[in-house]
Write a protein that binds this DNA or RNA. Structure first.
Lengths: 224, 224
DNA sequence: TGTCAGCCTTAAGACAATCTTAATATCCTG
DNA sequence: CAGGATATTAAGATTGTCTTAAGGCTGACA
């Protein structure tokens, strides 16, 4: 998971980043609101952590700026203040969640994951080539033909779709499907195989491709 | 990874270097800002650690000087001061990150790696002459024709591109591709050859050139 | 409470891609 | 032209991925 951390206190920033990277996230920094906006627009982050108290452009401004630019990346507001008014202000600016510093790291991580999960699910209805996906109803069709998946199959499909057409590493899939467990590629391989059996095998060309050494991706591409 | 450490406290310098070398990095020293600038310009370092408090030319000056010379090597500022103003000053001079001393070595190492990784990813250079490179999709085209690479091939291409048009020494390539292993030019030659076979051989002129005694580089230049 | 179906995990072996080694050839530089 | 540096090739080792099957777990339901 790629996270953008916008926080002017370098020390705090460092300790948060250290923790996030320990969890396997990739963390970029911005130390000013200005830089935050620029990075958020250029880079592709899955979640943005945004300190409220920043010089000049504060967290609210950054968030509002992003939303005005049409960016919907989930934003988690970080702040030392805990009053209701501030919270409301944060949400009015388009923040998706709100955490009061200092907060225990595991809590922060949980909130980040919740946000990420939610943002993925917002793609209730999706299409990819011959695929029709409805995450809410858990209905899936390829070329008009219904396909049924197991819960794990859905999760794998979910993360593959959300990154398509990029390659997703096996370890990222694992972290997404089994967030609190030891990595174990064995089972992932089995589930991947099951997913392919349901999604690709009955049809004329595969959507799920493996890129040896890097991971897998889902693309609608008859050749590749 | 080659790191330049610019720090006037010889004792601190030594202890940092000891740790870095334990992690497999190669560490050069400068004890004055002056020497730091010269080394940074002559040698090719992947990351520069820069103490802020230096006699005469201080860290900010060194960093600014480098940027003015067109050098974009990532700079990690080291300092005992932790105020917001100092941080801002560091960043305005073009520093990429900021660590407050004393900081735990593993944290320092994490930041160095994060910087390094980011600098590689910032290859906005997704193109080089007839080459189209997409690291996220792991897709590569030359003159519109798809080329597939092995993981090692990608890594070599990555470091060549990130230094282009400069020559990259074989030992630097090795350190990048096999960070925790003994150097062994044998295999590097084999992989280089494979890369050329995929990238150059099927086409009318080579992009990868060897500069005997110094290393190799990737340039789009039909003559040279 | 016992049974069953669906799902998940483990394990083992097959297969494929990639890597390394090593032996030999060729190229450069002084 | 000699010697080191680089290139080439092929075989064998290693690692990554796929496939299958058996057994375990869990929740629904009688």
């Amino acid at each position: 998971m790629r996270i953008l951390l916008v926080e002017d206190d370098a020390e705090l920033s460092a300790s948060i980043a250290e923790f996030l990277e320990l969890q396997g996230a990739e963390c970029d920094f911005a130390y000013t609101g200005q830089a935050g906006v620029e990075l958020a627009i250029s880079g592709s982050y899955e979640v943005i952590l945004l300190d409220v108290m920043l010089p000049k452009l504060d967290g609210f401004d950054v968030c509002a700026a992003l939303r005005n630019h049409g960016y919907s990346t989930p934003v988690l507001m970080l702040t030392a203040m805990g009053t209701t008014e501030d919270q409301l202000k944060g949400f009015r600016a388009g923040g998706d969640d709100y955490v009061v510093k200092p907060c225990p790291m595991p809590l922060l991580w949980a909130r980040i994951n919740a946000l990420f999960r939610r943002s993925l699910n917002q793609q209730a209805l999706k299409r990819l080539g011959p695929l029709n996906i409805d995450f809410e109803k858990r209905k899936l069709e390829r070329a008009g033909q219904a396909i049924s998946l197991t819960p794990t199959g859905w999760k794998i499909l979910e993360i593959l779709l959300s990154h398509s057409p990029k390659v997703v590493s096996r370890s990222n899939i694992e972290r997404f499907v089994w967030p609190d467990e030891e990595p174990d590629q064995g089972r992932l391989n089995v589930h991947l195989h099951a997913l392919r059996k349901a999604l690709d095998q009955p049809f004329n060309y595969p959507l799920i491709k493996t890129v040896t050494g890097f991971g897998v991706c889902i693309i609608d591409d008859k050749k590749a």
